[in-house]
Simulated assay, not measured.
Amino acid sequence: MKSVLSAAALAWAALATTPAAAHEGHGLPGSSHWHATDTAGLLLVVVLAAGLAWWTRRK
């Protein structure tokens, strides 16, 4: 019974991770791409860094 549960858990884990390989760039070496949320996050970091630099240099 224990081996059946282990096999079922392994099968479930394999199926649960299948959507992560939906398109190229997810973990493939040499292949990368950007999503809209990646760009928005990068822009947010840049804006926050610029704001922090302005805040610390003001008189």
Rank of each mutant, 00 (worst) to 15 (best):
T56S: 11
T56N: 09
W34N: 10
W34K: 13
S31N: 08
A49P: 00
V45F: 04
L52V: 03
H26G: 02
L15W: 09
W12Y: 14
A20I: 06
H26N: 13
H26T: 05
S32G: 08
P29C: 07
A21P: 02
W55M: 00
V47D: 00
A11Q: 08
G30D: 11
W54N: 00
G25P: 01
A36Y: 15
S31P: 02
S31H: 14
V46H: 04
A36D: 07
A14Q: 05
A13W: 03
H23C: 10
G51I: 00
K2F: 11
A7C: 11
V47K: 10
K2M: 11
R57E: 06
R58H: 03
A14I: 07
V4W: 08
S31M: 12
A16P: 00
T37I: 06
S3V: 07
A36N: 14
L10I: 12
S6G: 14
V45R: 12
V45W: 05
A9H: 04
T37M: 04
T37W: 04
A9C: 08
G30F: 15
M1N: 07
A49N: 05
P19I: 01
H33P: 01
L44N: 15
D38T: 02
T37R: 08
L43Y: 06
L48E: 01
M1F: 09
R58N: 02
T18L: 09
D38Q: 07
V45D: 04
L52Y: 13
V46C: 03
